[in-house]
Amino acid sequence: MRSILVVTSSFLPLVQAQAKARRAEPRLVVVDHPIGGLSPEEFAGREEAAYAGVVAELRGMGELS
């Protein structure tokens, strides 16, 4: 199963360290922290960044043209 990991910038070091410990190379989409407790307008920006990142990764994987 192929996967993409969306992570907020604050948790990127944790994800990278975990990936290194497990010798994994996840496809990462990094969005600004936080994504919880935001106003709808603030959240829309995070959503846009996550969506654009996931689409770019899916294109890179050949899932989208």
């Binding site: 996967s3 993409i4 969306v6 992570v7 907020t8 604050s10 948790f11 969005v31 922290h33 919880g36």
Partner: peptide
């Protein structure tokens, strides 16, 4: 069940 997964780690 699925071919692809998007996993989110957020707070």
């Amino acid at each position: 069940q699925y071919r692809l997964a998007v996993v989110a780690i957020g707070d």
